[in-house]
Amino acid sequence: MAIFPAHSRDLPDPEATEALGRKLAALARPGDVVLLEGPIGAGKSCLARAFIRARLGDQEEVPSPTFTLVQVYNDRGTEIWHADLYRLTHPDEVWELGLDQAFETSICLVEWPDRLGRHLPPGALTIRLNSMGEGRQAVIAGGRPGLAQALADG
């Protein structure tokens, strides 16, 4: 298994988290899986919402998929899957959601990826949001070559 260097970026406020989401949206392509890690309130949904709105427009309604588990959006023929796996009780439930196929053909934003267990897709980009005083720090690793570095660079 390859070890990828981690890069970090300070996010002093919600606007900085949104800016990271918009930057990711500009760089993402089908087959990219983004694993959003961090405790409740870390900014995972904020980042995902900014990503989706950057791709689809600021007026796009982006509800949290906490209860539906997955929301799917269409961006000019590319599906964007936003999954919140907090309520999954077993990793094999990922097959019922269809995420395994989405990982190959869509852009996937996955909150609470630890719920995937052994189904973590190889080559996924991981963004871990950590509390840091009043703001956050994003620790970014994996993904396509150069992607983590590009996101860490302000």
Score class of each variant (00 low, 15 high):
G142C: 02
A141Q: 12
W95I: 01
H90R: 15
A28C: 04
L97A: 13
E104G: 00
P121M: 07
I3P: 00
A16M: 05
P63H: 00
G117T: 05
R136W: 02
L120G: 05
L85D: 09
D58Y: 03
E104W: 12
G133Y: 10
D75V: 04
E15S: 14
G154R: 03
I40S: 04
W95F: 15
D75A: 15
L125G: 02
G43I: 04
L147Y: 01
Q101H: 12
A138M: 04
S131W: 14
L97W: 11
D114V: 04
I107S: 02
L47R: 06
P12G: 05
R128Q: 09
W81E: 09
V94T: 13
P65N: 12
T126E: 04
L85V: 10
G135A: 03
E111T: 10
K23G: 07
G117D: 10
L116V: 07
G31L: 11
L120T: 13
G57A: 08
A42T: 04
I52K: 00
T126Y: 00
R55Y: 06
Q101W: 11
E96I: 00
P39M: 02
R22L: 05
I3L: 11
L120Y: 00
P39E: 11
V110P: 08
P14Y: 03
T66Y: 09
P63G: 09
E93P: 10
G142R: 01
G31Y: 10
L36Q: 01
L129P: 05
E18D: 07
E37G: 01
A83L: 15
R87L: 14
R128W: 05
V110R: 10
V70C: 15
A28D: 05
K44W: 01
L85F: 12
I80V: 00
R115N: 04
F4S: 11
G38K: 06
G98H: 02
D92S: 14
E104C: 04
P122C: 02
A26G: 15
H119L: 12
P145F: 03
R9C: 06
N130R: 14
V72C: 11
I127K: 06
